[in-house]
Simulated scan of single mutants.
Amino acid sequence: MAILPGFTFTLSSIAYAAAIGLLSMGLTLTYQTTRVPNFAHATIAMIGSVATLLVIDRILGAQPSWKVFILGPLLGGVAAAAFSVLMYLAVLKPLAARGNTITGLMIATFAVDIILLNLLTLILYETPGRHIPKLIGAPVVGYQPKLKILGHVVDSYTVVLPVTAVILTALFHLFLTRTSFGVAMRATIENPSLAGAMGVNTDLVYTVSWAISGFLAGVAGALMAFSFKGVDPAVSALVIVTVFAGSIVGGLESVYWGLIGGFLVGLAEKIGTAIVNNVYRAVFVTHLGFPNVSLINYEKVMSLSLVILVLLYAPRGLAGVDWSRLAARLGLKRLPSWRR
């Protein structure tokens, strides 16, 4: 029995990890700017998934088309960004102005999450399908072109999603480092009071950070729709666990480490769980007579175990590790310090 997963499974796992990386990066961004853990973040991503489903059903029809990878992420990203900004301006900012604590704001994100979840569910239940009979729980994996890579026929989203993640990360990095507003955003993250004293419009920075976070979530959700068994907003309840795990592993101190943490957690959930399952069946079932059960459905155990492991040895997450010192202790060339 093979221990390592197959080629197509590995590609889909990398795509899933890339989406979780984008979501964790967005979650980390809003936490850095406003210090609010946004528990509605995964449901905001489901706006993108719903957008992809509606694009297929109402615009493109039943035939696979590359246009779905343009229209779905674009509409989903814009809609998710708009909702994210509305959530910040209409709920979180007024509550903060009235003296609510971080705990109160966090509970408010729970309330928004439930409202949005029901709204998206209602939309899918009540919207009549043109090409997809029942929108709630409908799979969209078949409404995309296929690609042939190294002799394997694969779903095109497994390539499009990681490439999109790389492009968005590169654009975000250029925005932070090459634009005056990006520099102002970094200054606000470092020291909001000082940035405000220097003339930075911190309120605008906070609003833009929520817009960027929502856009990243919407794009990730639009492409993740192809990995779901069916587009159902309730999936967000499982996704948010993984997203927070990725942000915590990254350390909540750096958007880049949030991306890396999310990617590692995503790989751990898919590839890590698959390897453990294969080892269990090859060793414990075949040779020791253990029950022949599948461990694939217990992927959250892998991601949360990774969180515990990282917090035990790096309480501030990967962003808090002195990588130069660690490299020196291992006899490697000293590495430059990387925080943001």
Results as ranks from 00 to 15, higher is better:
Leu75Arg: 02
Leu75Thr: 06
Gly76Thr: 03
Gly77Phe: 05
Gly77Glu: 00
Gly77Ala: 09
Ala79Cys: 13
Ala79Ile: 08
Ala80Ile: 00
Ala80Asp: 02
Ala81Arg: 03
Ala82Asn: 08
Ala82Cys: 14
Ser84Asn: 10
Ser84Glu: 01
Val85Tyr: 00
Leu86Asn: 06
Leu86Gly: 12
Met87Thr: 13
Tyr88Ala: 06
Tyr88Arg: 10
Ala90Trp: 11
Val91Ile: 15
Val91Phe: 09
Leu92Ser: 00
Leu95Thr: 05
Leu95Phe: 12
Ala96Arg: 15
Ala96Glu: 05
Ala96Gln: 09
Arg98Leu: 08
Gly99Ser: 10
Gly99Phe: 13
Thr101Arg: 04
Thr101Pro: 06
Thr103Leu: 15
Thr103Arg: 09
Thr103Phe: 14
Gly104Trp: 13
Gly104Met: 10
Gly104Thr: 11
Ala108Asn: 13
Ala108Trp: 04
Ala108Cys: 14
Phe110Asn: 05
Phe110Ala: 01
Ala111Val: 15
Ala111Ile: 15
Val112Ser: 08
Ile114Ser: 07
Leu119Trp: 12
Thr121Tyr: 06
Leu122Glu: 09
Ile123Ala: 07
Tyr125Cys: 02
Tyr125Lys: 14
Glu126Cys: 01
Thr127Lys: 05
Pro128Asp: 12
Gly129Lys: 03
Gly129Ile: 07
Ile132Tyr: 08
Ile132Asn: 09
Ile132Phe: 10
Pro133Asp: 12
Lys134Met: 12
Lys134Tyr: 11
Lys134Glu: 12
Leu135Asp: 00
Ile136Val: 13
Ile136Tyr: 10
Ile136Pro: 02
Gly137Ile: 05
Gly137Gln: 08
Ala138His: 08
Pro139Thr: 10
Val141Asp: 14
Gly142Thr: 14
Tyr143Phe: 15
Gln144Met: 05
Gln144Asn: 01
Lys146Phe: 07
Leu147Trp: 00
Ile149Lys: 00
Ile149Trp: 12
Leu150Tyr: 14
Gly151Thr: 05
Gly151Ala: 07
His152Ile: 03
His152Asp: 07
Val154Leu: 03
Asp155Cys: 04
Ser156Asp: 03
Ser156Gln: 06
Tyr157Asn: 07
Thr158Tyr: 13
Thr158Asn: 10
Val159Cys: 00
Val160Tyr: 03
Leu161Cys: 01
Pro162His: 03
Val163Ile: 13
Val163Phe: 10
Val166Asn: 10
Ile167Leu: 15
Ile167Ser: 12
Ile167Gly: 08
Leu168Asp: 05
Thr169Leu: 15
Ala170Glu: 12
Leu171Met: 08
His173Asn: 09
Leu174Val: 15
Leu176Val: 02
Leu176Pro: 01
Thr177His: 09
Thr177Gly: 04
Thr177Ser: 07
Arg178Val: 02
Thr179Val: 03
Thr179Asn: 05
Ser180Ile: 13
Ser180Tyr: 11
Phe181Met: 15
Gly182Val: 03
Gly182Arg: 07
Val183Asn: 06
Met185Ile: 00
Met185Phe: 05
Arg186Val: 00
Thr188Asp: 08
Thr188Val: 05
Ile189Tyr: 02
Asn191Pro: 11
Asn191Ser: 10
Asn191Ile: 11
Pro192Asp: 14
Ser193Pro: 02
Leu194Lys: 13
Ala195His: 03
Gly196Leu: 06
Ala197Ser: 15
Gly199Ser: 06
Gly199Glu: 04
Asn201Phe: 11
Thr202Arg: 00
Leu204Ile: 10
Val205His: 02
Val205Arg: 04
Val208Asn: 04
Ile212Pro: 07
Ile212Ala: 01
Ser213Ile: 04
Gly214Gln: 06
Ala217Ile: 03
Val219Ser: 06
Ala220Asn: 05
